[in-house]
Design a protein around this nucleic acid. Structure first.
Length: 139
DNA sequence: GCCAACGTTGGC
DNA sequence: GCCAACGTTGGC
């Protein structure tokens, strides 16, 4: 099991929409590092859903339901998409501010590489976030 | 709205 | 192959 984090601008595709849709094709990624992370995702991996801009917080947990395939928004075969599905919300959302306050989270790639939109998360970081948010993971 | 960080492009 | 110019993202 690998853990990830994806960023979304809430006015483009908010978490609430995933709650309704149940599934989302995560496409349009045009950054090689982010693409490599998409390609490394395995079915069943858990994905933290982060709102950038106004919210700047981790708000829920999604899951990889389909591994990397050709990005449907382009015929350029360098780019891939995955399908994410709704998993569960966080009881308390975790703000970027909170993450920066936590010594053990300050080294997250999310903090170190602010512009990357698909980000690996360590098991330890994932567990700390679950604990801080008082969320019991549903398997 | 500004700007830092950083990726991409194109001229040489 | 280097690097200046430029574009984009996202935090503040």
């Amino acid at each position: 099991m690998t853990y990830w984090l994806v960023k979304s601008e809430p006015d483009v595709y908010p978490w609430e929409q995933l709650v309704k849709d149940k599934k989302i094709v995560w496409d349009g990624v045009r950054n090689y590092q982010a693409r490599n992370n998409l390609q490394a995702m395995k079915k069943g991996d858990l994905v933290l859903f982060y709102h950038s801009n106004e919210d700047k917080a981790i708000i829920g947990v999604a899951r990889v339901s389909q591994e990397a395939y050709q990005d449907p928004t382009t015929t350029d075969n360098r780019w891939v998409a995955v399908t994410l599905s709704y998993h569960q919300p966080l009881i308390n959302i975790i703000s970027l501010e909170e993450i920066k306050k936590q010594a053990k989270l300050r080294e997250m790639v999310l903090v170190k590489q602010a512009r990357l939109s698909v980000i690996p998360v360590t098991t330890n970081e994932f567990n700390i976030i679950m604990k801080l948010s008082q969320t019991k993971l549903v398997i």
